[in-house]
């Protein structure tokens, strides 16, 4: 879409807002609709829009294969570590209110928040990888 001036300009104006909206959805997972999964999907939608408007090479120069692989495992790692910390603090897996962070209410608040961030990172990275693999393949 190199010659699509309009789509290119509009996409470059909208993409930052879409990304911020994705982060908003992740952060407000507890009190609104959405959460880690939905936020991750919206974030990857912004990257998909970038690929559609600017092409694959440009997108690869921003997010390399290595980066997305690394991020998808980082998210899962965050999830696992928070779960294990709960066990170390004396609860069962993902029993947030056992975490030693002030009151049990605050602890579960922060625990859920951390989990949402982990899920969001993983979902966004995996969806980006899937899209890159599928879009890069040519019809045989």
């Amino acid at each position: 879409m190199k010659e699509h001036i309009i789509v290119r300009v509009i996409a470059s104006i909208l993409i930052p807002f879409i990304q911020l909206y994705a982060l908003y959805v992740i952060a407000h997972g507890e009190i609104g609709p959405g959460g880690g999964f939905q936020g991750g999907v919206i974030f990857s939608a912004s990257i998909i829009l970038y690929v559609l408007a600017f092409g694959m090479e440009e997108a690869r120069s921003r997010i390399s294969q290595k980066m997305s692989d690394l991020l998808s495992s980082t998210g899962a790692l965050i999830f696992a570590i928070i779960g294990l910390l709960c066990i170390l603090a004396g609860g069962s897996y993902l029993e947030y209110d056992q975490l030693p962070l002030g009151t049990p209410k605050l602890a579960s608040h922060l625990g859920i928040y951390g989990i949402e961030i982990g899920i969001g990172i993983t979902v966004a990275a995996v969806l980006i990888t899937i899209f890159f693999e599928m879009a890069g393949r040519k019809d045989d």
């Binding site: 879409m1 959805v25 919206i42 939608a45 559609l52 408007a53 879009a135």
Partner: peptide, 30 residues
């Protein structure tokens, strides 16, 4: 909270149509 969903839907709808058109025009997505 339905407004959040409406905003997401507007977004996805826009991207989906652009993706479809790009596929129709070039036969690929990249």
């Amino acid at each position: 909270h339905f407004l959040d969903i409406a905003l997401v839907y507007a977004l996805i709808n826009f991207i989906a149509t652009i993706a479809f058109l790009k596929y129709m025009e070039t036969g690929g997505l990249d």
